[in-house]
């Protein structure tokens, strides 16, 4: 009885993907990106189809999806590279496409960065002239952190350094919205940590909003506060990262005798996965930890360990609910 009520409440809490909101606390924080029924078609291919979402200010938003899911298309629409086929995408209420007022606050670091000039010295001069928010001091600080010299020939750099050069320019421009395609790719762990620290400072100081696309959930799970999952051009869900784990609990239990899934269900546990290995049983259930412990303790278990739930497991669960196969996402 009690459990049913709890479950119902959680269901209503779970946002409908079509109206998913990611604002931290929507009253306080301004919404930066609003996509309304956003579609981008390339001929017969629907790269994005009727995507609705809101991305809140100062958020670090992770956009996850496999190749061809529509991540890059979404970023290009947010950067004003593409014009939507249908629907709209707005930056602080403004159309982005062909609108320098919006674009001067947005920087897009593409998966394959391009440099108009041959070195950072000339490139930085170009950025300085284009972006009013350019911070020369920060630029020099970044040059110390990243192993690239100002007069180094950019076209001779490796893919990883290429990306780092693009990040230097992007971050020193102090955008209000930073779009990054596969941002952490090609960065070693030290650089990765450096980048996170710099981004963390920009978010804290300037309220910069960051949108990172990645194929790899693990790359993002320790840094984002919100995640959106794209599949086949559709946004499956958008959720606050910590809320994803709420209401789901994983436990390892052992009982004296055998116990069946049915038995546990009859006691009020909402089992999502039941996996027995000998006397050891692993349970994934849609309950709070307290509920799980209270119910299982009635059976006097020999062992009851609540295990941390990885985001992968959450995603697998969320997706299996939608009957999608996403093994490639988690590879």
């Amino acid at each position: 009885m009690v459990n049913n009520q709890v479950v119902e409440r959680k269901d209503s809490e779970r946002p409908n993907p079509s109206t998913a909101t990611t604002t931290q606390s929507s009253d306080e924080q301004e919404v930066v990106i609003v996509a309304d029924s956003l579609s981008k078609h390339f001929g017969a291919t629907k790269a994005l189809d009727k995507v609705n979402c809101k991305i809140g200010g100062a958020s670090i938003f992770g956009l996850i999806g496999s190749n061809g899911a529509g991540k890059s298309t979404f970023l290009r629409l947010a950067a004003g590279v593409y014009k939507p086929t249908e629907g709209t995408i707005l930056y602080r209420g403004q159309v982005i496409y062909d609108n320098p007022n919006a674009k001067k606050e947005i920087i897009f670091v593409a998966d394959q960065p391009y440099f108009y000039f041959e070195n950072l010295k000339k490139m930085s001069a170009l950025y300085r002239s284009l972006y009013e928010t350019w911070d020369q001091e920060l630029y020099h600080e970044l040059l110390q952190i990243f192993p690239i010299k100002e007069d180094q020939r950019l076209d001779l750099l490796s893919k990883g350094l290429h990306r780092q050069a693009a990040l230097i320019l992007a971050i020193a421009s102090k955008p209000r919205l930073l779009l990054m395609d596969e941002a952490f790719d090609g960065l070693d762990p030290v650089m990765r940590q450096n980048l996170k620290r710099i981004l963390a400072r920009q978010v804290a100081d300037d309220g910069m909003t960051t949108l990172i696309a990645s194929q790899n959930l693990r790359e993002l799970e320790d840094f984002c506060d919100h995640v959106g999952l794209l599949h086949d051009g559709g946004l499956l869900f958008v959720e606050e990262l910590d809320k994803l784990r709420l209401g789901l609990v994983k436990a390892q239990v052992a009982f004296r005798g055998d116990i069946t899934e049915k038995q546990l269900k009859s006691m009020g546990l909402e089992i999502l996965r039941f996996h027995a290995r000998g006397s050891l049983v692993e349970i994934l259930s849609r309950n709070t930890e307290l509920e799980l412990r209270t119910i299982l303790n009635q059976l006097s278990p020999l062992l009851l360990d609540v295990l941390p739930l990885t985001l992968e497991e959450v995603f697998i669960y969320e997706l299996s609910r939608k009957a999608y196969i996403v093994s490639e996402l988690l590879a």
Binding site: Q24, A58, S59, I60, Q193, N194, K196, R197, A200, R201, V203, A204, D205, D222, F223, C224, D225, D242
Partner: peptide, 18 residues
């Protein structure tokens, strides 16, 4: 501060805030 902690640990300031 939120900023110091986020920068030091390389974690999301919103997470620290929370």
């Amino acid at each position: 501060s939120v900023r110091q902690l986020a920068m030091e640990l390389g974690i999301n300031p919103n997470t620290v805030q929370k």
